[in-house]
């Protein structure tokens, strides 16, 4: 087990470093010079030359990378091109929001995904199963931003149950916070839940058709115990990977969903920064999101080993 964790850890760190190099290089892929973006309407040739020297753009790339990564490891992502604010402030302010969004959406995705998947798998071919299959396929195909718009039209505007936009920090008012997060959670969670449901259903059907499940039934073990203890536990092994895949899916979705609900997280920050070409923020967001995904992959790999005894002995 320890060896498993160690090897996964090392490869994660390797991937992280490689990714950080790519993210660093973004600044140099800009056609022309970043100075033009920074200066915006103030981009005169003199100003550009002055700024380029100031930014140290003349140094050799490895030096610049070293400088950058050292700063990043201290949490210093530089300052926004646009308003000169330290990027770190933005990230610290917005990361918790996105993290909560991710956690809530993941909880919804897992709860609904597993329930629907399991219920559907218990009676394959039944009405419930067929309608769940239909829903799942539809869920994968509907653009989540359309879903978000429709949900907010219904629950916030028509019914007035939930705030239409915005965000109340959990420290300010936990109930308002919960309400302001519900629609984004569902908009993000539903699509992922369909993916999980689909996988869970398949895995459950496969597991419930195995000999050991028949054997358990043939031993007179109650069906609910068979489903939970043999069925779900075994089916979870492939599904846990799929749940892990949902982290990048939800992060990708949050980019647009946050915009629809004006949730002040990394997603709306990303879209705004992309439209503004505010590269330091884009870089920081990429680093944070990549770390998040790498970290969950690590956790998934380890829990995979924990769930699957075969991996444990390694």
């Amino acid at each position: 087990m320890i060896r498993l964790i160690l090897t996964r850890l090392i490869s994660s760190v390797g991937i992280f470093i490689a990714l950080s190099i790519l993210i660093f290089l973004l600044m140099y892929l800009v056609p022309g010079s970043v100075a033009v973006i920074i200066l915006d309407d103030a981009a005169t040739p003199e100003n550009i030359a002055k700024l380029e020297a100031e930014l140290g753009l003349d140094d050799p790339l490895p030096t610049q990378y070293a400088r950058w990564i050292v700063n990043v490891s201290k949490g210093d992502f530089g300052t926004s091109f646009l308003n000169g604010r330290p990027v770190r402030d933005d990230i610290i302010e917005k990361f918790p929001v996105t993290l909560w969004l991710l956690i809530g959406a993941l909880v919804i995705a897992v709860v609904f995904g597993l329930s629907v998947g399991i219920l559907a798998s218990l009676k394959p071919g039944s009405l419930l199963d067929r309608s769940s299959v239909l829903l799942v396929t539809l869920g994968i195909s509907i653009p989540n931003f359309w879903l978000a718009v429709l949900l907010s039209m219904l629950f916030a505007v028509k019914l007035g149950w939930l705030p239409v936009f915005g965000y109340t920090p959990i420290t300010e008012d936990p109930i308002l916070w919960f309400k302001s997060m519900l629609l984004p959670w569902f908009s993000l969670g539903i699509v992922s839940s369909t993916l999980i449901a689909r996988q869970m259903r398949g895995a459950m059907i496969e597991v419930l058709n195995t000999d050991y499940v028949r054997a358990a039934r043939a031993s007179g073990i109650p069906e609910h115990w068979v489903v939970i203890s043999n069925g779900i536990k075994n089916a979870m092994i492939p599904v846990i990977t799929v749940i892990g895949f949902q982290v990048p899916v939800i992060i990708g979705g949050s980019l647009i969903i946050e915009l629809v609900f004006a949730t002040p997280g990394l997603g709306s920050l990303t879209i705004q920064s992309v439209l503004d070409q505010d590269l330091p923020i884009v870089q920081a967001v990429l680093m944070v999101m990549a770390s998040l995904v790498i970290l969950t992959n690590l956790v998934i790999d380890i829990s995979y080993g924990w769930l699957n005894p075969k991996m444990r002995v390694l």
């Binding site: 490869s11 980019l255 070409q277 884009v282």
Partner: peptide, 25 residues
């Protein structure tokens, strides 16, 4: 395969947005 793993990390939409941030809309 290792380089491959790196790109598997990022959602497609984020990759697309990054390209726009660098190259413009």
């Amino acid at each position: 395969m290792w380089i491959n793993d790196i790109f598997f990390i990022l959602p497609a939409l984020l990759i697309a947005l990054t390209a726009i941030a660098v190259m413009g809309p």
